[in-house]
Write a protein that binds this DNA or RNA. Structure first.
Length: 728
RNA sequence: GGGUGAUUAGCUCAGUGGUUAGAGCGCAUCGUUCACAUCGAUGAGGUCGCUGGUUCAAGUCCAGCAUCACCCACCA
């Protein structure tokens, strides 16, 4: 018999064991032994292919692998479908940083070369990520691995785009969007982070155009946008201003005449109750401008500098222009008052640059517009959660979800970047016919560029330069993957059972998956959403490279083993709560793995004469032990069925260490040495150990499998613990 | 402006209305060649944030308050 080391050699055994699993083919649900009627599917949230995994990824691997392994042992056709995400903007930013270090940028490289480099870079990272997932023990089906830029995935995304267009849920329009002048792209509302900052509220005098000497005072935080003003608006109920409606004032920087209008969206008690309307650079102003058919003066260009419409401010950046505008107002006597003012400033979540509301032609998904059956995408999603077709764990996130859905606005899905799925839209450059002009030359073509314009026959056609928001494509991930991995995969594995991901992407991703999944498949994409928290250090700090407090999951795996890391991430935590991790905790579970190893060694050394094929009638006091153990099995199973992974793991930990190892093993040690009821003792040791191994397997797959491989087994037992039956 | 979470042992956290409120780490004392020092035994350590309420029974449910953390939001 093999002599086993007295300490569990994790880093030595783990790769061997993963190899064993992979060779067996059992990660693939089609190759699982036995008849399996029910399927259990989890689509892995695809990690970004732009960086190695961090500790947060280890959390999802642990939780999802627990569910998958548990259900596999319960006889389900368990499928965990892995993949990686091209992560459009995120990846482009990472790569641009690397370029910047070499003194280059994306504009000088050219679109094609830039894309090529990113392709290569993400392919390389994909391979690293895959190896990392393996070393964490992920029992996912690599034969079904997908990438968000796979051709077949892209064509499904295009098909969705086309259907939305035909259903009137997709439109192109000039709207105020969140524009980052540094990254030169627009964002959806979610990518803007607000911070409370001190600015100034400027009270500016606008003289009446009739030389009456009267004036109206307007409060603004953005005097630099005055050249873009097209009106002054007051509330129609505001008595102070009822006599000035319809009169004209002179805008004080470029001296244009603009009207005073009434609109009930103006707050009477803010500032002076008079609001300057700058449709091109503020979203409320845009809406008011549209309703009153006002002109639009775009004074700020996409490079973040003012243009010649801004008169004396031309050529300046926003902050320079603000200073200059203040000077001009001051010297002309137009600055009535300037006071400190704290308010929320929108900033780019990536670079912190102040977001400029800019007018741009973008593609929007009309999420609140009713279509088939009179319901909107939003209605469908809300209904699915309300009726319980989708269950969110923890349930308090339901409220958060509904609240966000209520305030939902149309979703801007175009991005002015290179890395991503190019928008499948072409514009006829000639628009030779009436029809073509009516259609604005817009050709939505999911199958590639049309040879000629379907409206007017022109061959001068250009593709939209923008790419799709990453979340638009990853929002289709559950069905897009299963539609492309094999003949019947979609019918067999969709809807999936669980979507396990971080609460921080509930809106970004989960909400969009629900909407788009229901749209394309008329079914929910998953039945349960399990949300985990963010990983933090002992001081509750978010882990970040700049803080230097990151824990590299692979480093931990090398030092303490994957099992220890997995336990440390799962135990002592509940759904939706942030996860605190520190080295001593991981060490504790490394010790536990060692405990399991040594109990197994002890049992192995004391099995002389024991035959696993033979059922034995234990003596009464041993029966009692087995009965008690039975209630532990029930408890663990119940916890797992209720997604209480921490409690399940902790129950096992407590039982195994402090009941089995500390008490039962100690008693049996004496009995075996004293040759007292040895057969019954061995039977108890063997059956409790093996059943504990089975239940611990989803949590600590490596050490349990390593021991399983060294245990004598009955002929009915599975060769691999991974596919052994759950002991209840 | 709206909303959410947290507050339990020195630290990090569990706790499903029902015995005397738990774990890990840390600490103290003792032990251990015979599965494991990555070990064992024993122990100290708690007005469960505060104030009220519901209940036969509250750490747990309800209301209010305080402190901390976070999320959402087009009042310029």
């Amino acid at each position: 018999m093999e002599k086993l080391p007295s300490a569990y050699p994790a880093s030595e055994l783990e790769p061997e064991i993963y190899h064993l699993w992979e060779e067996s083919g059992y990660f693939n649900p089609d190759k699982l032994p036995g008849e399996r009627k029910e399927s259990f599917t989890i689509i892995m949230p695809p990690p970004n292919a732009n960086d190695p995994l961090h500790i947060g990824h280890a959390v999802f691997v642990s939780l999802q692998d627990i569910m998958i392994r548990y259900q596999r042992m319960r006889g389900k056709r368990a499928l965990w479908l892995p993949g990686t995400d091209h992560a459009g903007f995120e990846t482009q930013v990472v790569w641009e940083r690397k370029l910047a270090q070499q003194g280059k940028d994306r504009f000088s490289l050219g679109r094609e070369e830039f894309f090529r480099q990113l392709w290569e870079y993400t392919q390389k990272n994909k391979r690293i990520v895959k190896e990392q997932l393996k070393s964490l023990g992920a029992s996912c089906d690599w034969s079904r691995e997908k990438f968000t830029l796979d051709e077949d995935i892209v064509s499904i995304v295009y098909e969705t785009f086309y259907q939305l267009w035909k259903d009137g849920l997709l439109y192109r329009g000039k709207r105020i969007v969140n524009y980052c002048p540094y990254h030169r792209t627009a964002f959806s509302n979610l990518e803007v982070k607000y911070t409370e900052e001190k600015t100034y509220l400027y009270f500016v005098r606008y003289d009446f155009a009739d030389n009456s000497g009267e004036y109206i005072t307007v409060a603004t935080t953005r005097p630099e946008t005055i050249p873009g003003d097209v009106a002054i608006a007051v509330n129609p109920k505001d008595r102070r201003y009822s006599s000035v409606l319809g009169r004209e004032v002179i805008e004080p920087i470029t001296k244009r005449k603009i009207p005073i209008i009434a609109d009930e969206r103006v707050e009477m008690d803010f500032g002076t109750g008079a609001l300057k309307i700058t449709p091109a650079h503020a979203s409320l102003d845009f809406e008011i401008g549209q309703d009153h058919h006002l002109d639009i003066r775009e004074t700020l260009d996409f490079d973040g500098k003012f243009n010649k419409l801004a008169g004396p401010l031309a050529g300046l950046t926003v902050s320079q222009a603000r200073k200059k505008a203040e000077e001009i107002l001051q010297s002309g006597g137009y600055l009535v008052k300037k006071q400190e003012y704290w308010h929320q400033i929108g900033r780019c979540y990536k670079c912190g640059t102040a977001i400029e509301p800019m007018l741009m032609d973008q593609w929007f998904v009309a999420v609140t517009k009713p279509f088939r059956g009179g319901k909107s995408l939003r209605d469908l999603a809300v209904e699915a959660v309300q009726t319980g077709k989708i269950k969110i764990i923890p349930s308090r996130f339901k409220k958060v979800f509904f609240h966000w859905m209520e305030n939902l606005r149309d979703w801007n899905i175009s991005r002015q970047i290179v890395w991503g799925i190019r928008i499948p839209v072409y514009y006829c450059q000639e628009q030779k016919s009436e029809l073509c002009r009516k259609k604005k030359g817009i050709i939505v073509s999911p199958s590639g560029p049309p040879a000629r314009c379907p409206y007017c026959g022109s061959t001068k056609i250009k593709q939209d330069p923008d790419v799709l928001d990453t979340w638009f494509s990853s929002g289709q991930w559950p069905f897009a993957t299963l539609m492309t991995t094999g003949e019947n995969d979609f019918s067999r594995f969709y809807p999936t059972q669980v979507m396990e991901t971080g609460w921080d992407i509930l809106f970004f991703w989960v909400a969009r998956m629900i909407m788009l999944g229901l749209y394309r498949t008329k079914k929910v994409p998953f039945e349960v959403v399990y949300l985990h928290g963010l990983v933090r250090d002992k001081d509750r700090q978010k882990m970040s490279k700049s803080k230097g407090n990151v824990i590299d999951p692979l480093g931990v795996v090398n030092t303490y083993g994957a099992d220890a890391l997995r336990m440390a991430l799962v135990i002592g935590n509940t759904a939706g709560k942030d996860i605190i991790i520190f080295e001593e905790k991981i060490k504790g579970y490394r010790n536990f793995a060692n405990k399991i190893w040594n109990v197994a060694r002890f049992v192995l050394l004391n099995l002389e004469g024991f035959n696993p094929e033979k059922e034995i009638e234990p003596i009464p006091e041993d029966k009692k032990i087995l009965q008690e153990f039975n209630s532990v099995k029930k408890k663990v199973t119940q916890h797992l069925d209720n997604y209480r992974f921490s409690l399940a793991g902790e129950t096992l930990y407590q039982y195994f260490w402090h009941t089995f190892a500390d008490k039962i093993v100690e008693e049996m040690k004496i009995r075996i040495k004293g040759k007292n009821q040895v057969a019954s003792a061995q039977y108890v040791l063997y059956s409790v150990l093996t059943d504990c191994l089975k239940m611990l397997h989803p949590f600590m797959p490596f050490v349990t499998e390593a021991i399983w491989q060294r245990l004598p087994k009955s002929s009915s037992a599975a060769q691999l613990l991974m596919v052994e039956k759950w002991p209840l």
